[in-house]
Amino acid sequence: EDDHHMEFCRVCKDGGELLCCDTCPSSYHIHCLNPPLPEIPNGEWLCPRCTCP
């Protein structure tokens, strides 16, 4: 699979289990988001950068 997502968290710059945005290459740990997510959501997810007006 050709995955163009970042291999590190945009916030802390560390790797591991990352949540990938469905519209851009950004990846995040769920605990690095503000507010943090309790678990990885099902379905499409947009990062804070893509949901800002």
Rank of each mutant, 00 (worst) to 15 (best):
18 L>A: 02
41 P>I: 09
3 D>T: 15
22 D>Y: 09
18 L>S: 02
43 G>H: 08
19 L>A: 14
45 W>D: 04
3 D>P: 07
16 G>F: 03
38 P>F: 08
43 G>Y: 06
33 L>F: 05
4 H>W: 09
29 H>A: 01
39 E>H: 08
4 H>C: 13
14 D>I: 07
10 R>H: 08
22 D>P: 09
25 P>F: 07
5 H>T: 13
17 E>T: 13
12 C>G: 03
33 L>A: 04
25 P>Q: 06
21 C>Q: 01
12 C>H: 01
49 R>N: 13
29 H>K: 00
41 P>H: 08
32 C>E: 02
12 C>M: 00
17 E>I: 07
31 H>A: 08
42 N>S: 10
3 D>V: 07
17 E>V: 06
19 L>F: 06
52 C>S: 12
1 E>D: 02
16 G>W: 00
30 I>V: 12
46 L>H: 10
42 N>H: 09
25 P>E: 05
2 D>G: 15
5 H>W: 13
5 H>E: 14
48 P>T: 06
37 L>G: 04
50 C>Q: 01
6 M>R: 04
32 C>V: 00
25 P>K: 10
49 R>E: 09
12 C>L: 00
35 P>R: 04
20 C>W: 14
9 C>V: 00
46 L>M: 08
52 C>Q: 15
39 E>I: 12
33 L>R: 01
29 H>Q: 01
34 N>L: 07
15 G>H: 04
42 N>Q: 12
11 V>N: 09
26 S>E: 13
24 C>E: 00
46 L>V: 14
28 Y>V: 04
19 L>I: 14
22 D>V: 08
48 P>G: 05
53 P>A: 14
22 D>Q: 10
50 C>V: 01
48 P>H: 05
19 L>S: 05
21 C>T: 00
3 D>N: 15
52 C>L: 12
37 L>H: 07
15 G>L: 04
50 C>Y: 00
36 P>T: 07
51 T>G: 08
25 P>I: 08
2 D>S: 15
20 C>P: 14
34 N>V: 10
33 L>N: 02
7 E>A: 05
24 C>R: 02
44 E>F: 08
37 L>P: 13
5 H>G: 14
20 C>I: 14
1 E>G: 05
25 P>S: 09
42 N>C: 10
11 V>Q: 11
25 P>L: 08
19 L>N: 09
14 D>R: 11
41 P>V: 08
36 P>Y: 03
8 F>K: 09
37 L>K: 08
49 R>I: 13
32 C>T: 00
34 N>C: 08
36 P>S: 09
44 E>D: 08
52 C>G: 15
32 C>K: 00
2 D>V: 15
44 E>W: 04
33 L>T: 05
23 T>H: 09
25 P>A: 09
48 P>Y: 03
31 H>C: 11
47 C>A: 01
16 G>A: 03
24 C>A: 01
36 P>I: 07
17 E>M: 09
24 C>W: 00
41 P>G: 08
24 C>N: 00
27 S>L: 11
12 C>T: 01
30 I>M: 13
38 P>W: 07
34 N>W: 04
43 G>P: 05
13 K>Y: 05
4 H>E: 09
5 H>Q: 14
9 C>R: 03
5 H>M: 09
35 P>C: 04
5 H>V: 08
44 E>G: 13
42 N>W: 06
10 R>S: 06
3 D>H: 14
7 E>H: 06
25 P>R: 13
28 Y>S: 03
30 I>A: 12
15 G>P: 08
8 F>V: 12
29 H>W: 00
38 P>R: 11
32 C>P: 00
5 H>L: 05
11 V>W: 06
17 E>A: 05
21 C>W: 00
42 N>T: 14
38 P>G: 07
35 P>W: 03
30 I>E: 10
26 S>Y: 09
39 E>T: 13
43 G>F: 07
29 H>R: 00
30 I>D: 04
37 L>W: 06
38 P>E: 09
23 T>P: 01
25 P>M: 07
37 L>Q: 08
43 G>A: 10
14 D>V: 10
3 D>G: 05
40 I>E: 14
16 G>L: 02
27 S>W: 07
44 E>R: 12
26 S>T: 09
38 P>M: 10
37 L>A: 07
17 E>D: 06
41 P>K: 09
8 F>R: 11
19 L>W: 04
7 E>R: 07
27 S>T: 11
2 D>P: 06
42 N>F: 06
23 T>S: 11
49 R>C: 11
38 P>K: 14
20 C>N: 15
46 L>A: 11
23 T>D: 05
10 R>M: 05
10 R>D: 08
48 P>I: 00
21 C>P: 01
2 D>K: 15
30 I>N: 10
51 T>F: 13
4 H>F: 15
38 P>I: 11
43 G>N: 10
33 L>S: 03
27 S>R: 13
21 C>M: 00
46 L>N: 15
14 D>Y: 04
15 G>Q: 08
36 P>R: 09
40 I>M: 09
39 E>G: 11
46 L>Y: 10
7 E>K: 03
20 C>H: 15
21 C>S: 00
5 H>R: 14
42 N>D: 10
11 V>L: 06
11 V>T: 12
2 D>Y: 13
26 S>G: 13
47 C>Y: 01
49 R>W: 08
35 P>D: 06
49 R>D: 15
46 L>P: 04
8 F>I: 12
2 D>R: 13
48 P>M: 05
32 C>D: 02
10 R>G: 05
13 K>H: 05
25 P>G: 09
6 M>E: 15
29 H>M: 00
47 C>S: 03
35 P>S: 06
44 E>N: 14
15 G>M: 09
